[in-house]
Amino acid sequence: MTGTITRLKLKNTENMPLIRVNSLDKKYNEGKNNEVHVLKSIEFDIPRGQMIAIMGPSGCGKTTLLNVVGGLDKYSSGSINIGGNNIGEISEREMTNFRLDNIGFIFQLFNLFDSQTALENVTLPLLLQGYSPDDAIEKAKMMLQEVGLGDRMNHLPGELSGGQQQRVAISRALITEPLLILGDEPTGDLDSETSADIMKLFQRTIRENPQMSIVIVTHSQTIAEQCDRILRIEHGKVASDEVLK
């Protein structure tokens, strides 16, 4: 069920990769003395049903890549095609709706609304989509139960552990059933045991939703090795693209 706003539909791209990045360049402070060329001619495809890890040293442009792919930041040149839509050509408003319907974000620091309970955090995207409050709550409750937070739904983020908070964040990202999950160090703030739990959750999600892709930025080789593929970025360029499974 979607709201009344006209939304961009994913085109029939069954045989195409979900994401196609071509000659992507990103410069900060473009044309100024302090210009920084972060991403340089990046090219890669991400097919559906794949979980990809992006690795690389600090400052190499991993998070920037994730942000521009997710439409949180603009790129300087090149193109990003998601599900048949070139996101460089769509308006700001369309991008917002596109993000709402098709992309789920997960951050290292969870980025939950600290004044909202776990349940409320998860219902927000549904309310934005126009769900009735009752439907939104019901669906969010189911989602939180699925991630094992059935007994923590009415807790504020400050009252949850890091792993629990991240599971709320994942629930919020998954609740709209997006085709693409972008995770920026989703386990970076968690211990290894909790990290493993989170990765299992990702794996289960992608198993249950083969049309979906998950892209996570990570420093951890262990985490990366649990993905299907590792894309290494160095000095703003794709240094290697290793398919594991």
């Binding site: 997710g70 949180l72 700001e92 408003r93 917002t96 709706n97 993000r99 709402l100 319907d101 974000f105 980025n111 939950l112 609304f113 927000l124 995207p125 934005l128 989509q129 919020r172 709209t176």
Partner: peptide, 10 residues
């Protein structure tokens, strides 16, 4: 930023 990331329009 969080609001925008999860789909709040301007």
């Amino acid at each position: 930023g969080m609001m925008r990331a999860i789909g709040f329009s301007r």
